[in-house]
Amino acid sequence: MSETRFTKDHEWIRLDGDTATVGITKYAAEQLGDVVFVELPVVGKLVAQASEAAVVESVKAASEVFAPLSGEIVAINEALADDPAKVNADPEGAGWFFSMKVSDSGQLAELMSADQYADYVKGL
C-alpha cells in the first residue's frame, strides 16, 4: 500500500495497486462540524480528476468532494448511510467515502504528501 496523498480541497487518497480509497481529511471533518449526511456516487461512475464525486453535509454546510484522480468508482462506504458520524470519528479510516480504479496513477505525483499538507493547512 502506498502512502496517503492529499489535495488542496482536503481529500485524502491512498493507492493500493490500481485501486485508491478516498475520503476527507481530519482537518476538513473538523471544519465541517458534525457530519449528518454523505451523498456518494454510484458504483461504475467515471470521474475526472477534480470533478465533483460526492457531497458531504453537516448541519450548517454542504461541501462538494472532488475526485483526487481520474478513474471509475468501484465501491462506496455504505456504512455512512446509517452512521455518518464515522466521518467525524475516523475521517481517514472508517469514514472513507469511496474507492476508485485509477486510470492514470501518474496524477498522484501532483498531490501533496502528509508533510506538505500539514504545512498547507497551517497556512490557512
Partner: peptide, 13 residues
C-alpha cells in the same frame, strides 16, 4: 432540519 438542501446553504446547488 435537513436544511443543507435549501437555498441559504446550498445557494446555486
Amino acid at each position: 432540519t435537513l436544511s443543507t438542501r435549501e437555498q441559504h446553504i446550498r445557494r446555486e446547488k
